[in-house]
Design a protein around this nucleic acid. Structure first.
Lengths: 169, 169
DNA sequence: ACGTCTGATGAGAATCATTCCCAAATCACT
DNA sequence: AGTGATTTGGGAATGATTCTCATCAGACGT
């Protein structure tokens, strides 16, 4: 036991874990500062996992991929969502549990979701500019007619993913 | 005790409960038949409540408004959803619990949802025909490019409803 | 009308995800 | 390198949803 440093294991041994890209790390730091949140190893790991996935993950997926304990993963995801660094997105209706992905300012671009109603997996897709423009117009109209102050919109397509289709048919 | 019939109380005394419209009842009967599901008083009450509400309700709202016991309400909503008579819709992301409304063939028309991110209430709104057409086109494209067999789409606008806006500002 | 038989009911137990708790450890920052 | 506010984590607590199963209602044939 040569100088075994007893540190709380923040990055347990295991399959190679992705690293958070420096660009995202810097932006995240800025976003966390005003809330006095630190970019700890666990938070870094959680964000790295989300960045690498490129699609919304369940809490369970994050727990397994990041190595963070369950309670820490839940807490961090909630805090990061609150800080606007990650986005909480809905999975398949009826499936319990939200999913999380890097918020748009920290990932690539505006996108929408393809949700598999069978296995619950969620993939990203990019909407056409034309659709996006029309949605914007509709949203502006809703502000006027409904009394709702619209902050964002969700356009998800639901169906069966390729895997589920080939699996049982 | 003049002929007090002892029947299980299926419509407990209480505030006037809405009745299910005959047209919907007939259509529902047809939909339930192949599954050997009966249109019992509780199911009728649940459906009547959904029909009267005209917006997606939480299980709790259904329980209170219909008088059905919790376990019965959950069971019936799940069965009716399975049968395609009611639709399970997502509420605010992060809010636990799906909501239910009459499925489109049994209610009025195709519509979308306005979700309040603060109190979770969900209202219906009608999309413009133009938007709807463009969505259809986009969905058709997704089938080709993603491998997903799209069954339906969700276009929800999220924001703060009039009540929440006036309440805390 | 009456029996019969299948589907429905409902109270509580069981399950499961999520949140809470708080003493102890850690890390970001000077 | 020190240090104090923040984070951690294991387990308990909470809450929603589902399950169980003995009992009941209702449709149907006779």
């Amino acid at each position: 036991m040569a100088g075994t440093r007893r540190t709380r294991r923040s990055a347990p041994a295991g399959p190679a874990r992705p690293a958070l890209s420096p660009a995202v790390a810097a932006a995240v730091l800025t976003a966390l500062a005003p809330r006095e949140l630190r970019l700890t190893p666990h938070r870094r790991a959680v964000l790295a996992v989300l960045e690498a996935a490129g699609r919304p993950l369940t809490v369970d997926e994050v727990v397994h991929a990041s190595g963070a304990p369950t309670s820490t993963a839940y807490r961090n995801l909630a805090e990061l969502a609150e800080a606007g660094v990650v986005a909480r997105v809905a999975g398949a209706v009826g499936a319990s549990g939200d999913r999380f992905e890097l918020a748009e300012p920290f990932s690539h671009r505006h996108h929408h979701h393809l949700v598999c109603t069978e296995c619950g997996v969620v993939a990203d897709f990019d909407p056409s500019g034309e659709l996006e423009r029309l949605i914007e117009r509709e949203v502006a109209e809703l502000l006027a007619t409904s009394g709702f102050e619209i902050t964002h919109h969700v356009f998800d397509a639901h169906g069966r993913c390729r895997d589920c289709r080939t699996a049982d048919r």
